[in-house]
Amino acid sequence: MIAEERRALILKRLSENRYVQVSDLAGELDVTTVTIRRDLDEIETDGLCIRKRGGAIRVNPGVTMEMPYDIKQHEMVSQKERIGMKALELIEDGDTFILDAGSTTYALALLLNSKVQITVVTNDLKIAGKLAENPKIKLICTGGVARTFVYSLQGELAEAFIKDIKVDKTFLGADAIHMDGVISNVNIEEVSLKKAMIRAADRTILMADSSKFGKAGFVKICDLHDIDVVITDSGITNEVREMIYSQQIEVYIV
């Protein structure tokens, strides 16, 4: 396991437990305590934790770092599958739509074999690899710079392409949805691309599992009332449910 993946797992443990111990992390990750201390020092330098004797505590409960794809794909699996199935119902044969990068939109991509004459635009290399196997789907990749371990494309080339097209729908992912209705992201370089995806579509559908709500990312994408549909799972709290419905948008809870 490389350092980036190891530190992402440490941050995940911090988000789950608030406090982590060096000895526990060393045992879980099968590395020395010296390595874990060095990782925690780096994370503290980034302002994401505070070192304490024998471990560290997280700075805040918000979203602070994007997890590698190989970690995200194993989280909230059944919830993402249900969200993907509901999203599939919103696609009609002949549609042209954007699939934003992410493990939740990938769950939708796995189900597209039942549709015919659809055109899919994506900046997700995992999604592109899967859909390229299906001759019934017209697949278009945005181009751009590939992000290591995240398998998405971003940058000026991707943005320029999206700005020049018009689609029926965009299926959007996000890192966080705060209780004030702000949808946000960890990676600042992805935000302008996501905004372009929203502008390119007649309808925007946000696909977000319940773990994304009640958190704040680094950069705002838009407000909930700027999109048309939210699909999430039944794990959301009553407070989150009320907040979503207050936005007066179409909501599906699966």
Rank of each mutant, 00 (worst) to 15 (best):
1 M>V: 06
3 A>Y: 07
4 E>S: 15
5 E>V: 11
7 R>M: 15
15 S>K: 15
19 Y>V: 08
20 V>P: 01
23 S>M: 02
31 V>F: 13
34 V>L: 12
36 I>F: 04
36 I>E: 02
47 G>Q: 10
47 G>Y: 10
52 K>G: 11
52 K>R: 13
59 V>I: 11
65 M>L: 15
67 M>N: 09
68 P>S: 06
71 I>E: 05
74 H>D: 14
80 K>W: 10
89 E>T: 05
90 L>S: 03
93 D>G: 05
94 G>F: 02
112 L>C: 09
115 K>W: 06
116 V>R: 15
119 T>K: 15
125 L>N: 04
125 L>I: 14
125 L>Y: 09
126 K>N: 13
128 A>D: 05
131 L>D: 08
136 K>A: 12
137 I>M: 15
142 T>D: 11
143 G>I: 07
143 G>S: 08
144 G>S: 05
146 A>W: 06
146 A>C: 04
148 T>D: 13
150 V>D: 08
150 V>Y: 06
151 Y>T: 01
153 L>S: 03
153 L>N: 02
153 L>I: 03
154 Q>G: 02
155 G>I: 02
159 E>T: 15
162 I>A: 08
163 K>T: 04
174 A>V: 04
178 H>K: 07
180 D>Y: 06
181 G>C: 06
183 I>S: 08
184 S>A: 12
184 S>V: 05
186 V>R: 06
194 K>S: 04
196 A>V: 00
198 I>H: 04
199 R>Y: 08
204 T>E: 00
204 T>L: 14
207 M>Y: 05
211 S>M: 03
212 K>L: 06
215 K>W: 04
224 L>H: 04
227 I>R: 07
230 V>S: 06
231 I>L: 05
235 G>Q: 06
238 N>A: 09
239 E>M: 04
241 R>V: 00
241 R>E: 11
244 I>W: 01
248 Q>R: 14
250 E>I: 04
251 V>F: 08
